[in-house]
Write a protein that binds this DNA or RNA. Structure first.
Lengths: 156, 156
DNA sequence: GTATGTGCAAATCGTTTGCAAGTCA
DNA sequence: TGACTTGCAAACGATTTGCACATAC
């Protein structure tokens, strides 16, 4: 996991060609401290002072272009963003939304294979990879529902 | 690649618990003939007679629930759908949008590893995996732009 | 001082919902 | 017939755009 201390955030931002404004520094700090990819909404809630959502969208877009952060799609209908650290991916529970972070796996090998086999492409710049499943807790709940003599007892 | 002849589409649809209406049969046929994942817009354009987009959204959603088709995310801001055939994934050119289809690679091994390592999950139900890069054609164009003595000459 | 960043209002786009009418089994 | 489908209108939520003002460097 990439680490950025508060002094270096300023340098990082400037090197990317942006002004080190409070808004951009705050957003980067929030993403850095987050333990999971955040939505625009979640970033907005953590921001103090509050910022217009438009500002957040614009900052995230710029950071993404410079590859400082990356976009993650959990198929929830809205984008999630996280620091673009070393490759790691996620399993998302389709029942409760719980997210587990995965270590690198053998993705690098796979990417090399992919580009070697490709007829049209010569380099890969990014990828998206998420796994969806049902977490153990939800799995148990589901089994309970199926076998329960009284469906009304079961809460979601 | 899974094949469905026109008589069997009806059976497939009924087995999934849906009525074999012209709209659903047409949409399945379109997806079957498509060489790449289609957007709702693209399905709408190919439909004859035309159908309300709402109808297309609803049919695609139902087919997805029954795992007859799958959702593919190219980070283009709208969903793409394709028949849920054997695992294959895509490389998408971030410059021109060109799509190359990949063969299975070593994904199955990887998924087994993933679930073995996971503390919270016991089964995976689906995944998303797309690679983004710059295709050879666009790569050449970009190099031209950089080295060109007259930027105006280069078209996008 | 000037290019860049920000906030506000409004537009846009993909997608979803409610409801009445139509259709398949 | 009756449940499932469809179309239309309208709502919705995420994201984008235009423009005037503010700020970093």
């Amino acid at each position: 996991m990439q680490r950025i201390d508060s002094q270096n955030i300023v340098l990082l931002v400037r090197k990317a060609g942006f002004k080190a404004t409070p808004a951009i520094l705050a957003i980067l700090t929030i993403l850095q401290r987050a333990k999971k990819p955040l939505t625009v909404q979640e970033v907005a809630e953590k921001l103090n002072p509050k910022r217009d959502k438009v500002t957040i969208y614009r900052i995230l877009e710029k950071l993404k272009e410079k590859r400082i952060i990356r976009h993650v799609d959990f198929q929830h209908g809205h984008a999630h963003y996280e620091l673009n650290s070393d490759d790691h991916h996620h399993i998302i529970c389709t029942a409760c939304g719980k997210i587990e972070e995965l270590e690198e796996c053998s993705l690098k090998n796979m990417m090399q294979q992919v580009i070697k086999k490709s007829a049209l492409f010569m380099r890969l710049t990014s990828h998206s990879m998420e796994f969806f499943g049902v977490c153990k807790t939800c799995d148990k709940k589901m089994k309970k529902i199926v076998s329960s003599p009284n469906l009304m007892k079961v809460r979601t």
